[in-house]
Design a protein around this nucleic acid. Sequence first.
DNA 1: GTACAATCTCTAGCGACTAGAGGTTCAAGA
DNA 2: TCTTGAACCTCTAGTCGCTAGAGATTGTAC
Lengths: 142, 142
Amino acid sequence: MDLSIGDLSRRVAVKVPTIRYYEQIGLLPAPPRTEGRQRRYGAEDVSRLSFIRHARDLGFEVDAIRELLSLSARPDQPCEPADRIVLRHLESVERRIAQLTLLRSELRHMLDDCRHGPVRECRIIQVLADHDECRHEHGKVS
Amino acid sequence: MDLSIGDLSRRVAVKVPTIRYYEQIGLLPAPPRTEGRQRRYGAEDVSRLSFIRHARDLGFEVDAIRELLSLSARPDQPCEPADRIVLRHLESVERRIAQLTLLRSELRHMLDDCRHGPVRECRIIQVLADHDECRHEHGKVS
DNA sequence: GTACAATCTCTAGCGACTAGAGGTTCAAGA
DNA sequence: TCTTGAACCTCTAGTCGCTAGAGATTGTAC
Ligand SMILES: [Zn+2]
Ligand SMILES: [Zn+2]
Ligand SMILES: [Zn+2]
Ligand SMILES: [Zn+2]
């Protein structure tokens, strides 16, 4: 196993510049290089990058992934810190779903109420101009 | 009505630097200035900024808001373009909710399956290392 | 040996702000 | 009227997680 950055990229489905970026921010270790200073990767890099990619796909932030990686390197430690990271993430996903659900309802109402006449009579424009016309206390969609 | 940028900020609950930023990107018109080059705003600015703020709270992007603002300045035109903007936004909110719902389920499973032992046995770490352990084809959470 | 795809480094851009430095103006109280 | 200091000004840079390009070098297949 002696993969170029392009090989690694295809294997793990992470773009080449992203791999270099992960190295730059210290998420991936700097790999050995060829004579001509091209990067060469091994099996360990494949699994580490797969882990990172999967965690990113699941919405974890880079700092959280950093902690999860360093935890998985200490297999005898209790896993509780990892659980707490996931729980925190789950809670933020739940908050986000709640916000977006309110938002969806608000947008549906706007569309339902619109009579498709001139802008002057358009409920969408009216609601946008005045939050009091809203059904919900949708917060800011952060 | 002759409001300083701070007055406007308090009235509409938009931070002062954000107001200047909106002017810079052409979302708010450049207001008249005092002798000492401080900005002074009127009633029209209050409603325009309220509109912007409400649309941002509802998750519209700045470009969409630009279009919505220019539509609301033509009250005799048909409102259909506004409706299409809202529909597009609603659809993206719905996609996002669907993604996040899958994600939530996946995270809950991870937490449920964890036996709170050493990292070596932690389901969370195992699942992160291998997407085949996942219940769902959660896509990338963009 | 040569062509050319892939790699390299470096810088800048995305969206929608936010923070800070360093300087100027306005307005209220003495 | 003068003084103080909060609020204002402009400009630059930072946030997050990449992505895109320029321009130079290297690896590899024919
Ligand atoms: Zn309408
Ligand atoms: Zn509202
Ligand atoms: Zn665990
Ligand atoms: Zn998965």
